[in-house]
Structure formats: C-alpha cells, structure tokens
C-alpha cells in the first residue's frame, strides 16, 4: 500500500466512522444537532474525497467544539482516537514536504502500535489482571456489560483468566507482529475481532470503527520502514 492510497483509505474509513457517530445525535438536543448535522455532511465529503484538506480542518475544529460542548470527550477513548487520526491527517495536508507528511502519518502508525502495547503493559503489571480478577470485576460490577445476562460471565473465572491473558499477551506482542506482512495482517484481523467483541459485549461500537480507520497507516508504515529493502 503506497502513501497516497493509505491516506485515501484512512479518509474513507474516518469519514464513515464520523458519519456513524454523527447520525446517533440526529434526534438529540438542538445544540447537539447543530454540531453533528454539519459534522455528518463533512464526514460524507471526506469519504467522497471532496477538498479533503479543508474538510479535515473543519472536522478538527468541530472536534474542538465537541470537546468544549461536552467539557471533554463524549465517548472517552474513541473520541480521543478520532481526534488523533484527524490531527495526523491535518498534519499530512499541512506538511511542506513528502518527508514531513510521512513523519505525520508515521506518528499515527506508532500511536496505533502504542495503543495496543501500553494497554497490555498497564494490565500485566497489575496483579489483579494477572490473576484474572480484574476481568471478573469488569463483568461483575463495572458499567460496561451491555446486558445483565453478561454479568453471569463473572462466574466463570477460569474462562476469564484465559481471556485476560490472551488479551494481555496479544497486546504486548503486537509490535513484534510488524516484522512480517502476514503476521501483521493476521494481527490486524485479530485486533479488529477484539474491538468487535468489545462492541458486542460492552456496547463500545465507536471504538471498532475508529480503530480500524487507523489500520491503513500501519500497513503503509510497515512497508515503508520495516520490511522495505
């Protein structure tokens, strides 16, 4: 995947993610509609590739307006990732040379790797995660399970122990999976499956769409800097 294709694919996936987020606010309060209806229009323009530099700039401004309106992110980590992807895209458009464009887009790729690695690191240094207790707590009393029946999973500590270690090991070895094309593709499929499971079990649908919008950057980054001869 060359640089231009990766940036274009990021625009399309990001536009889709923003359109999906925006539609969810169409029936909300008037001051939210005023933010999200224009954001939906801009997201569609980004998807079809119309004046993408200006459109991304306006989307970034609308992201700042959202931060002000909700006094922080509306949807935690997914809003922060949205701003990060948009920030890097804007830097790509503003960069004066190809080298600076690659640095900006490469920053997104590195942050994507960090998003898995550091999430794994902060878990594995915590004894409650290592024992599987933390994942039991998530299902037993946290706000995340999307239905009451999912709380029953907390009564299967062995299954959750295996799941907790599976998640931690995958997140920690993610950087190593960049070393070959096939391992990276498999890693991204597994990671997308992980986000899909989080969306189903915890209702975190926005994380799924926004994280996969950053995947083209890592596919390009690997070809450009790691497996390039």
């Amino acid at each position: 995947m060359n640089f231009d294709d990766a940036v274009r694919l990021t625009e399309i996936l990001l536009g889709f993610a923003f359109a999906q987020q925006s539609i969810e606010h169409f029936k909300s309060f008037p001051n939210e509609q005023r933010l999200f209806i224009p954001r939906f229009v801009l997201a569609v323009l980004l998807m079809i590739g119309f004046q993408t530099a200006w459109v991304a700039g306006l989307l970034f401004l609308s992201g700042l307006a959202m931060l002000h309106r909700f006094q922080g992110p509306y949807n935690g980590g997914s809003d922060r990732m949205s701003l990060l992807v948009l920030f890097c895209l804007c830097l790509v458009y503003l960069a004066p040379t190809q080298r600076w464009q690659e640095i900006a887009f490469g920053y997104l790729a590195l942050q994507l790797v960090f998003s898995y690695f550091f999430s794994g690191w902060v878990k594995i240094v915590n004894p409650e995660w290592r024992s599987g207790r933390a994942l039991c707590d998530v299902f037993q009393f946290s706000v995340y399970p999307a239905s009451e029946s999912l709380r029953q999973w907390s009564k299967s500590p062995r299954v959750l122990f295996v799941m907790a270690w599976g998640v931690m090991v995958f997140e920690l070895i993610f950087p190593l999976l960049l070393l070959s094309r096939i391992s990276l593709v498999i890693a991204l499929i597994v990671a997308a499956g992980f986000h899909f499971a989080n969306a189903c079990l915890f209702g975190l649908n926005r994380f799924f769409w926004i994280w996969i919008s950053a995947y083209p950057s890592i596919l390009w980054f690997q070809l450009r800097f790691i497996t390039a001869n």
Binding site: E24, S28, Y74, N75, V143, E148, S149, A199, C200, N205
Partner: peptide, 28 residues
C-alpha cells in the same frame, strides 16, 4: 441495561447505538 441482547441486536448496535453511547457519556 437490558436483561439480554441477542447477537442480532448486538450487530445492529454496531451501527446504531445512541442510547448506550449517551449512557457511557453520563458515566463520564
């Protein structure tokens, strides 16, 4: 939260999940 969600309902929520996302905002 609902007592149970079918897999189809979970799939639907991939695209349309405003209530849940609003609830997560209220948790914040």
């Amino acid at each position: 939260r609902p007592a149970h969600l079918s897999f189809l309902q979970m799939l639907g929520r991939m695209f349309w999940n405003p209530e849940r996302n609003e609830s997560l905002f209220l948790v914040s």
